[in-house]
C-alpha cells in the first residue's frame, strides 16, 4: 500500500480512506512518541504531568485512527500491527511531527504550529460525511483544543519572557517553518476525499491558521515568520527526514525482535 499504490490510476474509496487514516494516525503516533521522550526530563515538575498528558492524548488518538484504518483494509491488521510492521516508506505522517524534540522552545513551537492545523482538521472531520471518521474526530477534538491552548500559552511565555527564551524560540521557528507548507498541501488522495466530503480541503484552512500564528507571534514579543524559499514536502509519500527511521527503531524494537507474540 501507500507510496506504490498512489501511482496506479484506479483506486477505491476504501484505499483512499485507508491511506488517509494512516496519515492521521501516524501524525498522532509519531508526535506522541516524541512527546513521551520528555517524560522524566521536563523543565519543571509540573511539566512532567503536562508532557505525559499530551503524549497520552496523542497515542490514544493514534490508536483510534489506526484501528479504523485496519478495519477498512480488512486484512486483519490492527493498530499495533500497523504501527510496528511498516517501514519509514509506508509512514504517512507530516515531517514536522518527527523532528527531534530539541529544547523546550523547539518542542513548544513544533507543538503549536502542528496542533493549530491538527485542531482545524479535526474540527472539519467532526462534520465529515464518513460517520466513523467523524466519531473519532469529535472524541479527540477537545483534547487537541487543549493542546493548542497549552502550546500557545508557552509561545507567549517564551516569546515574551527573557532575551534567551525569545532567541531560542525564534531559532526553533526558523528551523521548523520549512515543514509548515506540507500541512496545507494535500496529495491526490486527500483531494479526492475532500471532493467526497470526507476530508477537509486543506487549502481552505491555511489563511485562518496563518492569521492566528501571525497574531500570536506578534503578541509574543514580536516573533518573526522566516522567509523560506522552498517548503520541504514528502511525508505523505513516505519520504521522511533521517530522524523517522531512528524513532521507528525504538518504537518497533520488541515487535520486530520477537515477532508474533502477545505482550
Amino acid at each position: 500500500m501507500g507510496a506504490l499504490a498512489t501511482n496506479t490510476v484506479e483506486r477505491t474509496l476504501d484505499q483512499d480512506r485507508f491511506d488517509y487514516l494512516l496519515h492521521l494516525g501516524d501524525n498522532a503516533l509519531v508526535l506522541g512518541q516524541r512527546m513521551s521522550e520528555w517524560v522524566g526530563h521536563a523543565p519543571a515538575l509540573e511539566l512532567e504531568m503536562a508532557v505525559s498528558n499530551l503524549a497520552l492524548d496523542l497515542i490514544g488518538e493514534a490508536q483510534l485512527w489506526l484501528d479504523l484504518a485496519g478495519r477498512i483494509e480488512g486484512e486483519g491488521r490492527d493498530a499495533d500491527r500497523l504501527a510496528n510492521f511498516r517501514d519509514a516508506l509506508d509512514f504517512r505522517n507530516l515531517l514536522i511531527v518527527e523532528q527531534p524534540n530539541g529544547d523546550w522552545a523547539f518542542t513548544v513551537a513544533r507543538h503549536y504550529l502542528f496542533s493549530l492545523q491538527h485542531l482545524a482538521v479535526v474540527e472539519r472531520l467532526s462534520e465529515s460525511r464518513d460517520e466513523e471518521i467523524a466519531d473519532i474526530a469529535r472524541k479527540v477534538r477537545p483534547e487537541i483544543a487543549y493542546h493548542v491552548k497549552f502550546a500557545r500559552s508557552w509561545i507567549e511565555r517564551l516569546g515574551d519572557g527573557t532575551e534567551e527564551s525569545h532567541a531560542r524560540l525564534q531559532r526553533a521557528i526558523d528551523r521548523l517553518w520549512r515543514f509548515t507548507g506540507e500541512m496545507f498541501a494535500p496529495d491526490a488522495i486527500e483531494e479526492r476525499l475532500a471532493d467526497e466530503g470526507i476530508a477537509p480541503d486543506l487549502r481552505t484552512l491555511e489563511a485562518d491558521w496563518r492569521a492566528e500564528v501571525e497574531q500570536v507571534f506578534e503578541a509574543s514579543g514580536g516573533l518573526d515568520i522566516p522567509e523560506v524559499k522552498r517548503m520541504t514536502l514528502g511525508g505523505r509519500e513516505g519520504h521522511h527526514s533521517e530522524h523517522l527511521g531512528h524513532l521507528l527503531c525504538e518504537l518497533q524494537f520488541l515487535q520486530r525482535a520477537y515477532p508474533g507474540l502477545e505482550w
Binding site: 509540573e46 512532567e48 503524549a55 497515542i59 490508536q63 499495533d80
Partner: peptide, 26 residues
C-alpha cells in the same frame, strides 16, 4: 521503556503509571 513499549495498550498504561509517579512526587 516508554518509547519501546510493545503495544499501544502497554504504552498507554506505562505512560499513565509514570505520570502517576510524577503526580505522587508532587
Amino acid at each position: 521503556w516508554i518509547t519501546r513499549a510493545p503495544t499501544f495498550r502497554r504504552k498507554l498504561i506505562l505512560l499513565a503509571k509514570v505520570q502517576d509517579e510524577a503526580g505522587h512526587g508532587l
